[in-house]
């Protein structure tokens, strides 16, 4: 569950949201729409404390986002950006990177588990030994999604994650992320993605307005 309460979001002194409220229940698949630069990505970043909110509060599964809770909240949420950063040289290392941190130490997946996840998203196991800088944008997006899935996170923030994917890969990604146990807050212009979501919210005059499906 994600709850925005009376939030005011500002970037470079421009108000993007003012007194906005939004409740996202567990299992919801919500997509945020709006013109370019209206603050959709900023909204996603605010949930994980990457961007400060000027006023209001954000609650994640009953925990208020604060300095004391931000690390715990980040470890519960997967954030996948439009141009994901893998953070290592080799793809396999990128998938195992989070397990080198104290928060996930001792929970690293097995090679079989990794290969199974990779193949489910229409990637070949060969990709694991490739250099991250040599793989395509769509492959990077899927590797970032696989990494989040390997962490067994239940809340996903996805910013245009299908923008570089072909229809088959997109369908595979949607199959993974639209599972009932996953709560999804996303930004997308992709009609198939929007169709798959059960809720649509639009940025409108510094407010978040739900659009009937």
């Amino acid at each position: 569950m994600i709850e925005f309460r009376n939030i005011r979001l500002e970037i470079h002194r421009q108000t993007l949201l003012d007194g906005a409220n939004l409740h996202i229940a567990n299992g919801d698949k919500l997509v945020v729409r709006g013109a370019s630069g209206c603050g959709k990505s900023s909204l996603l970043k605010s949930v994980i404390g990457a961007l400060p909110i000027a006023e209001g509060s954000i609650g994640i599964e009953g925990t208020e986002l604060s300095a004391a809770t931000v690390q715990e909240i980040r470890s519960r949420i997967a954030f996948i950006g439009q141009e994901p950063v893998l953070g290592t040289e080799i793809v396999r290392d990128a998938l195992l990177l989070p397990f080198s941190f104290k928060a996930h130490r001792g929970t690293a997946p097995t090679e079989e588990h990794i290969v199974e996840r990779v193949e489910r998203l229409h990637l070949s196991a060969d990709i694991l030994d490739k250099t991250c800088s040599r793989i395509s944008g769509g492959e990077k997006q899927r590797i970032a999604i696989i990494r989040a899935l390997l962490l067994n996170k239940s809340i996903f923030l996805a910013d245009e994650v299908t923008s570089a994917l072909d229809p088959q890969s997109r369908a595979a990604v949607m199959e993974e992320l639209f599972r009932p146990e996953i709560t999804l807050l996303s930004v997308s212009h992709d009609p198939e993605w929007i169709k798959g979501c059960n809720r649509i919210v639009e940025f409108n005059t510094a407010q978040l307005r739900e659009v009937a499906k």
């Binding site: 994980i48 950063v85 928060a103």
Partner: peptide
């Protein structure tokens, strides 16, 4: 972005 990614992946 890279630095924030490490934080998002659970790094302190």
């Amino acid at each position: 972005n890279e630095f924030m990614t490490y934080l998002m992946l659970g790094a302190n």
